[in-house]
Design a protein around this nucleic acid. Structure first.
Lengths: 353, 353
DNA sequence: TTACCACACTAAAACGTTTGCGTGAATTAT
DNA sequence: ATAATTCACGCAAACGTTTTAGTGTGGTAA
């Protein structure tokens, strides 16, 4: 008998081990083990005996011992910028659901958009013996050496949302290009021509793709791209201050924009809050369309025209890909980047004044 | 040498073990182990030798082996109704920060407000060898036998937010009574008398406390408590439908309420959304104050007068208490219920029409 | 010299599994 | 009747660590 981890204080409770079963049934440990795993080496009579006994006595294999023996921990690491962010919590929701039903634990860590935290978390996770890693890069991250090393060593890694082009592995992203294209086109169709774009750090994959979509939509409508309409506000610390400066600059232009297209969840809501603060009416004074996964878009003031990313599906897809990598018998050479559709929900913040 | 879990495909990478160090340095395994743990049995010369070698070769003890040996997993289980909920993700944020810096992993599971999921998750976590459990009960939960058994057996458990009175252990809650009292008083002071209360299932601790605060505030203002002003809408599936019915009934009363006090995060935003849908103006047609931890309260339509719970602090406090239980040398008999202050943020949804 | 002790280290068991190999018995083929 | 094969099971090593119980050396006290 052993005691459950954590149950070491007043242990009336005993957890049964394979050894107990063996002793009780007059069998060897290996026979019991094999019987439980339904090995062909064991007679069906013995198997039944053992399995019945195990069931009755509520036997559960010790996962830690199994991990040690089999060299896999049945847990996967997740690195996100922040849990406290609707989009990422939706992703985690998706991850958790699939992981759980496959017998995997999910260990979640946050970078808070800090590169050093990202490096540290990844290292921590690896040394906690994770079987695979799910990661969305933080905005500060410029190089991915900390991941490349692990990837070369064979650690299964899947990127989601904020991916790196410097590592060949499975990735899941939203259709950022199209999402941005749709959002911008929508503003154009509504009648806005002077559309500014507020986005995050220039070096993120997401930023590049959304910027491209924005530019292409303008180009397709024969509207010139104005560089002073494009503002980069790396999210992380002081986001509000950065966005405030960006807004100041935009509104001080000779031709201030009539509409804003914000490319990141946190930026969108920050912008809306700042517009409120300045007493600017949306959309009368300035229209707004943004990427956002908030569930409250309908009851915002005004209700928010938003590009919605399939967070839950992204999480599900990411972990499914990761499990495929983990379970693969042979090293995988062919990697895939899944692109999930975004959805534009038109609401009041972008109707023509 | 061993391979890191997960790094079993193309293993150029070798992880060093205590055995390797021993062989390389011509020492025994036990000497190395003791040297690394700075035992007094080992000469300082040898200690230095071993420690230097370990550092240089980037030795990291295998946590799984340690867990197996020491009977503790260095991971704690968290059970919440839903990750995708601002309040709980704030709590998890707090939990994660403390756990991480203490070398603990956090394994998160969700009940989605389903009792059977709660039972299942708890069982799953225990058999994953967690050292302790952090749990916020789901609304369906009526009895806590699944936890009592574990608690009697000595598993450290700390409740947060939605606690049980049937188990004596550490608990952290917000000051629900005062939060509700303040919210109701605020409405009364603003000039509303007919204040309805929409809350969740009657059997949750949170519900009882908030209901009590609501009633007391009315009593203190010499306003009679009307039972048909109190509506129970267990959150979980079909919350919107339940709230819709509750609203129908309230508005059909001879004296329909002029103000609403909603006691749960999800109910608050659902109510606001439904009021929008019906074209009712807030607060002109009906005022609204609710418990809510949304970060978007300022930009809701109208901006929301909200009772805010200290989610992050609650998470921090909960895990600190749990770690205290885990690290305790002797069984703890004295348990504490920490009550964290709530905060009322007055915004537009409750100004007098 | 003998006994004792501190010191610095080692051997081996233990945690709970899984698994390759060995073995005796029963069965089948020759 | 003997040999070959299959069957059903046991032995023991292994995963990487911690820890208990030694062991041998050298020094000190009697």
């Amino acid at each position: 008998m052993r005691t459950i981890a954590g149950l070491n204080k007043c242990m009336h409770f005993e957890v049964i081990t394979i050894r107990d079963i063996a002793r009780e049934l007059g069998l060897s440990v290996s026979t019991v083990s094999k019987a439980l795993r339904d090995s062909h080496e064991i007679s069906s009579k013995t198997k039944l005996l053992v399995q019945d006994y195990a069931r009755e006595h509520n036997y559960r294999p010790n996962p830690i011992a199994q991990s040690l023996k089999q060299g896999q921990s049945k847990s996967i690491g997740v690195v996100v910028p922040a849990i406290n962010n609707q989009f990422f919590s939706q992703v985690i929701d998706g991850i958790e659901s699939v992981a759980y039903s496959n017998g995997y634990n999910v260990i979640i860590t946050q970078t808070h958009e800090r590169y050093d935290m990202e490096v540290q978390n990844v290292e921590h996770l690896v040394h906690r013996s994770i079987d695979g890693l799910l990661i969305s890069l933080c905005t500060e991250t410029q190089n991915v050496e900390h991941l490349q090393k692990l990837h070369r060593q064979g650690l299964p890694i899947v990127f989601f949302d904020r991916v790196s082009n410097d590592i060949e592995t499975h990735k899941v992203i939203a259709d950022n290009y199209k999402g941005a294209y749709d959002a911008t086109s929508h503003l154009l169709e509504t009648g806005y021509k002077d559309i500014a774009h507020i986005t995050s750090t220039a070096n993120a994959s997401v930023t590049t793709e959304r910027l491209a979509g924005y530019k292409q939509a303008l180009a397709d409508a024969d509207v010139a791209v104005q560089n002073d309409y494009i503002k980069f506000c790396p999210n992380g610390t002081d986001l509000t201050a950065k966005v405030e400066t960006a807004l100041d600059e935009l509104l001080a232009l000779n031709t201030p924009p009539q509409a804003l297209f914000t490319a990141w969840d946190t930026i969108t809501t920050t912008v809306l809050a700042l517009l409120h603060k300045r007493g600017l009416r949306v959309p009368q004074d300035i229209a707004l369309v943004g990427f956002s996964n908030t569930t409250l878009a309908d009851i915002l003031n005004p209700s928010l025209t938003a590009v919605h990313q399939p967070g839950f599906e992204m999480g599900k897809t990411a972990i499914e890909m990761l499990l495929a990598l983990i379970k693969a018998k042979y090293p995988i050479e062919e990697f895939e980047t899944k692109v999930l559709p975004t959805q534009l929900f038109v609401r009041a913040s972008s109707v023509k004044a």
